[in-house]
C-alpha cells in the first residue's frame, strides 16, 4: 500500500509539473549563447567593422553564401573600416608568410587543421597605443560540409577559441543536394601589442571540427569536396584614455602554395546503379518479414477463456 502511495505521489507530481508550464515566463536574460549576444566592448560606431562578427552584416543583406557576393562585401565594406587610433594604419597590414592546411582524421567527422604564420613589420616609429589583437579566420564551407555551431560553442566554453559562429544553412541533417552553404567565423587570440613587431613572427594553429553531409550520387562511389582558402583578418582593439578603437586588416598572403593550402575531402557516395536492386530487395524483404510475422501470429496459440477452463 505504501509503495502504491509512493507511485501515486510520483505520478501526481508529474501531473503537477505537466500542468503549470505557463506560470513560469521567466525573466532571466539569456546570455550564454555565442550566437545571439553582442559584446559591448566591440560595439562602436560603424558596420561591419564594429560588429561582433565580421561576416554578420553580409548575412543581414544576403540569404545565401555566394563567393562573388562575399568577395564584393570584403572589398567594398570591410576595406572601408577606419582605424583612427593608428594614423598610418595601412603600414601595419599583417602578411601571411605560411599557410598550411591538412584534414585530420578519417570518415565523416574530421578536423581541418590550419597553420598560419603572420609577419608584422611596422614601418616608421610612430607611437602605437596599447592594443590587443585577434586573428579572425573565415571559412566559406562548400555545401557538402558543415560545422556544428553547438560543438563550436563547447570549444569556446573550453577556451579553445575566443569566439566562433556559423552563418548560413545550419541544418545539420540534410544531404548536400538539399542544403545551402554555410560560413564559419572563428576568433583566436594572438596576444598584446603585436603591432610593435615580433622577431619570431606570429603563429596560430586552428583546428576546426567539420562534418560531411551525404553527397549527391556519384558513379565512382566517392565525391571530392574541395575546401577553398580561408579569409584571414587581424582585428586589434586599442584603448587610449577613454576612447576605444577597433582596427581590422585583411591579411594578405605573401605566397599561395597550392600544395599545402588546398584541401580535398573525399566522401563516400551512393551509386545510381544500385537504385534498382536496392529498392526492389528492400520492399521484398519488408513484405516477406510482414508475411512471416502475420502467418505466425495467426497460427500462434490462441487465448482460452475461463469458461473453457471450467469444462472438463
Amino acid at each position: 500500500m505504501a509503495a502504491h502511495l509512493r507511485f501515486q505521489v510520483c505520478v501526481y507530481m508529474m501531473m503537477f509539473v505537466a500542468i503549470v508550464p505557463f506560470q513560469l515566463k521567466l525573466v532571466q536574460t539569456f546570455s550564454s549563447n555565442v550566437d545571439y549576444c553582442s559584446d559591448p566592448d566591440t560595439i562602436i560606431v560603424s558596420l561591419p567593422c564594429s560588429q561582433r562578427y565580421l561576416s554578420e552584416s553580409y548575412f543581414e543583406k544576403h540569404d545565401s553564401l555566394l563567393d562573388l557576393d562575399f568577395q564584393g562585401f570584403l572589398e567594398h565594406e570591410l576595406s572601408l573600416c577606419s582605424c583612427d587610433a593608428l594614423p598610418d594604419s595601412a603600414n601595419y597590414v599583417p602578411t601571411i608568410s605560411t599557410l598550411q592546411r591538412h584534414l585530420l582524421g578519417e570518415g565523416s567527422h574530421r578536423h581541418l587543421s590550419t597553420l598560419i604564420k603572420f609577419s608584422v613589420q611596422p614601418e616608421g616609429t610612430s607611437e602605437i597605443p596599447a592594443h590587443s589583437c585577434q586573428a579572425v579566420v573565415v571559412e566559406r564551407l562548400p555545401s557538402g560540409i558543415f560545422a556544428d555551431p553547438f560543438e563550436l560553442q563547447h570549444l569556446v566554453q573550453r577556451g579553445v577559441f575566443i569566439d566562433a559562429v556559423v552563418f548560413g544553412d545550419t541544418n545539420l541533417e540534410l544531404p548536400s543536394a538539399l542544403s545551402n552553404r554555410s560560413l564559419v567565423e572563428v576568433h583566436m587570440d594572438v596576444g598584446q601589442n603585436i603591432l610593435l613587431g615580433n622577431k619570431k613572427g606570429l603563429e596560430i594553429n586552428l583546428d576546426l571540427p567539420l562534418h560531411a553531409r551525404y553527397p549527391p550520387l556519384d558513379k565512382s562511389g566517392y565525391s571530392g569536396v574541395e575546401m577553398g582558402l580561408p579569409d584571414i583578418f587581424m582585428r586589434c582593439i586599442t584603448t587610449e584614455k577613454t576612447q576605444r578603437n577597433n582596427c581590422i586588416w585583411i591579411a594578405e598572403a605573401e605566397i599561395a602554395d597550392a600544395n599545402t593550402s588546398h584541401v580535398v575531402w573525399s566522401i563516400p557516395s551512393g551509386k545510381n546503379e544500385h537504385s534498382g536492386f536496392v529498392s526492389s530487395i528492400t520492399f521484398a524483404s519488408a513484405l516477406l518479414s510482414t508475411l512471416i510475422i502475420v502467418l505466425s501470429a495467426i497460427n500462434s496459440p490462441r487465448i482460452h477463456s475461463t469458461k473453457d477452463l471450467k469444462q472438463p
Binding site: P175, Y214, L217, S275, T282, A286
Partner: peptide, 18 residues
C-alpha cells in the same frame, strides 16, 4: 532520414533523395 541508420529503408531513401 537518408543518413545511415538501422532501418532497411535508409539506402533506398538516400538513392532517391534528390
Amino acid at each position: 532520414d537518408p543518413r545511415h541508420n538501422f532501418s532497411i529503408y535508409f539506402y533506398h531513401i538516400y538513392l532517391h533523395h534528390e
